Amino acid sequence: DVEPGKFYKGVVTRIEKYGAFINLNEQVRGLLRPRDMISLRAENLNVGDEIIVQAIDVRPEKREIDFKYIP
């Protein structure tokens, strides 16, 4: 289970104008929005990159997770 405030290692699987999709594993995926990329620009991300993200909002009923990148 993903808990708000905890840090996780994930892999960038898709990049859109509104953010990057980060997979923690095959069943868990969330969104890293540009406003939550402190000191990281979306254009510096590539599909396949491994990054550490913090879960900031977890909505299990919608199967949605928002992440924040903190260097």
Score class of each variant (00 low, 15 high):
65 I>G: 04
62 K>T: 11
26 E>C: 12
3 E>D: 06
33 R>C: 10
59 R>Y: 05
23 N>R: 12
39 S>Q: 14
56 I>D: 02
1 D>W: 15
6 K>T: 06
28 V>L: 13
39 S>V: 10
15 I>E: 00
30 G>T: 02
45 L>F: 06
18 Y>N: 07
21 F>W: 15
1 D>V: 14
17 K>A: 12
9 K>A: 06
2 V>R: 02
13 T>R: 03
14 R>C: 06
16 E>C: 12
41 R>F: 10
46 N>H: 15
1 D>E: 12
51 I>E: 00
41 R>L: 14
47 V>R: 02
42 A>D: 07
47 V>Q: 02
6 K>D: 03
15 I>N: 01
65 I>C: 10
14 R>N: 04
27 Q>R: 14
45 L>W: 04
62 K>I: 08
55 A>D: 01
46 N>P: 00
18 Y>D: 08
63 R>W: 09
57 D>R: 15
47 V>D: 01
35 R>E: 12
18 Y>M: 07
15 I>H: 01
31 L>H: 04
46 N>V: 12
50 E>K: 11
42 A>K: 14
28 V>A: 04
43 E>M: 12
7 F>S: 06
13 T>P: 00
48 G>F: 02
43 E>K: 11
7 F>G: 01
1 D>K: 13
44 N>S: 14
43 E>V: 12
51 I>H: 00
55 A>Y: 04
11 V>R: 09
34 P>Q: 15
45 L>E: 00
67 F>Y: 04
55 A>S: 02
47 V>W: 03
51 I>Q: 00
60 P>E: 07
60 P>K: 09
28 V>Y: 08
63 R>Y: 11
49 D>S: 05
5 G>E: 03
12 V>Y: 00
19 G>M: 09
31 L>I: 10
61 E>C: 08
61 E>N: 12
52 I>S: 02
64 E>Y: 13
71 P>L: 08
13 T>Y: 05
7 F>M: 08
54 Q>I: 11
54 Q>W: 09
7 F>V: 05
40 L>V: 09
8 Y>K: 00
1 D>Y: 14
32 L>W: 04
69 Y>I: 06
2 V>S: 03
27 Q>M: 13
36 D>R: 04
15 I>W: 02
38 I>T: 13
52 I>L: 10
64 E>H: 10
21 F>L: 10
42 A>T: 15
39 S>T: 10
34 P>I: 15
21 F>A: 01
64 E>S: 07
44 N>K: 11
49 D>H: 04
13 T>C: 09
15 I>P: 00
53 V>Y: 01
32 L>I: 08
38 I>N: 12
4 P>T: 12
70 I>F: 11
16 E>A: 13
37 M>P: 03
69 Y>D: 04
9 K>T: 09
66 D>E: 08
13 T>D: 03
51 I>G: 00
1 D>N: 13
26 E>G: 13
18 Y>Q: 07
8 Y>A: 00
11 V>S: 02
26 E>M: 11
36 D>K: 04
55 A>V: 15
44 N>F: 13
64 E>W: 14
36 D>E: 05
4 P>Y: 07
21 F>C: 08
63 R>E: 09
39 S>H: 14
34 P>C: 14
57 D>I: 10
70 I>C: 09
56 I>R: 05
65 I>R: 03
42 A>N: 10
30 G>A: 05
17 K>F: 11
57 D>G: 14
12 V>E: 00
31 L>K: 06
63 R>A: 10
52 I>G: 00
39 S>Y: 14
26 E>K: 14
70 I>L: 11
48 G>C: 06
61 E>Q: 10
58 V>I: 09
37 M>F: 06
55 A>W: 06
29 R>N: 08
49 D>F: 07
48 G>P: 00
5 G>H: 05
42 A>E: 08
62 K>D: 07
41 R>T: 12
71 P>C: 15
12 V>H: 00
58 V>W: 07
36 D>Q: 06
71 P>W: 10
22 I>K: 00
17 K>V: 11
22 I>T: 00
61 E>K: 09
57 D>C: 13
12 V>W: 00
16 E>W: 13
10 G>N: 00
32 L>H: 02
65 I>Q: 02
57 D>P: 03
34 P>D: 11
18 Y>K: 07
48 G>M: 02
71 P>N: 09
68 K>E: 05
57 D>A: 15
53 V>Q: 00
3 E>R: 12
66 D>P: 01
46 N>E: 11
63 R>Q: 13
52 I>W: 15
22 I>R: 00
15 I>A: 01
70 I>S: 09
68 K>F: 08
30 G>R: 02
50 E>L: 14
23 N>S: 15
24 L>N: 00
35 R>M: 09
19 G>A: 05
20 A>D: 01
4 P>I: 15
51 I>V: 09
22 I>Q: 00
60 P>N: 08
2 V>H: 03
54 Q>D: 01
32 L>S: 02
27 Q>A: 12
7 F>Y: 11
20 A>L: 12
7 F>N: 05
58 V>P: 03
60 P>M: 09
40 L>S: 07
56 I>S: 05
24 L>V: 10
60 P>C: 10
